[in-house]
Design a binder for these strands. Structure first.
Length: 231
DNA sequence: CCCTGATTCGC
DNA sequence: GCGAATCAGG
């Protein structure tokens, strides 16, 4: 699979949002982690708390690769693993805000990841928080009237015992998607809707950003990148 | 071991 | 341009 505009857009979005290369690769499907990293660098968007780059200690001994060097003596390939310290970095890594209260970084030792959606017909959207719009006829939501002015703290939601499936949707229940389509536990919020809106009050606050007076916009939204793992 | 990103280099 | 192989730190 090649790098289409959509895939590049998603890569960029997630990369800048702080997702790891593995997560991005998995989300995109059909690409390796290395491919994602390589592409990201080629796109010019690198720089990110790298576990390897930040510190620049003294020249340490290189440990023997143990099971690789086969034809090193005969074929002197250039291997300038130069990790020298030419200039002073001085720049501190920007505070990476990776978590939102509702979307903790997936960093636990065990990653379930019960399925993958590589053979699905390609789903472009992330969810209401971070849609990847595609077609030109797909216009931006005209920012309806005057939705909630105060954003609810987006509480972690009590517990989802009974999930609202696609079939359970009606105009009275919140259509906010929980999880990703294709995942086994994908469902919908199901809360009572905010009258006049397709979502409950809480999710209206997420779906519709309050239109602030001109000049008082608040450009940097804290959302990671559309919240793929909102739960 | 696992993870991470960075870099190289043959294709 | 692409990405596997490799390196290197946590």
């Amino acid at each position: 699979m090649s790098w289409t505009d959509e895939r590049i857009a998603q890569l960029t979005k997630m990369w800048e949002g702080g997702a790891t290369a593995s997560q991005i690769a998995e989300e995109l499907g059909d690409v390796s982690r290395n491919a994602v990293i390589g592409k990201a660098h080629r796109l010019g968007l690198k720089a990110r708390p790298s576990p390897v780059k930040a510190s620049d200690k003294k020249e340490a001994k290189k440990k023997a690769p143990a099971s690789k060097p086969a034809a090193e003596a005969s074929a002197p390939k250039s291997k300038p693993r130069t990790t020298s310290a030419p200039a002073a970095p001085a720049k501190q890594a920007a505070p990476q805000v990776q978590d939102s209260p509702a979307a903790p970084a997936n960093a636990t030792p065990s990653q379930p990841l019960p399925d993958r959606q590589e053979d699905l017909p390609k789903i472009v959207s992330y969810g209401p928080g971070g849609f990847l719009r595609q077609g030109p006829g797909d216009q931006q939501a005209p920012i309806p009237p005057a939705p909630p002015r105060r954003l609810v703290p987006a509480k972690p939601s009590p517990e989802i015992a009974d999930k609202t499936s696609l079939l359970d949707l009606s105009d009275r229940v919140c259509r906010w998607p929980m999880g990703h389509p294709g995942e086994p536990d994908f469902h919908f919020c199901g809360e009572k809707v905010n009258p006049g809106f397709p979502y409950c009050v809480e999710h209206c606050g997420r779906a519709y950003q309050a239109q602030l007076p001109r000049g008082a916009r608040r450009p940097p939204p804290p959302l990671p990148f559309g919240g793929p793992r909102v739960r």
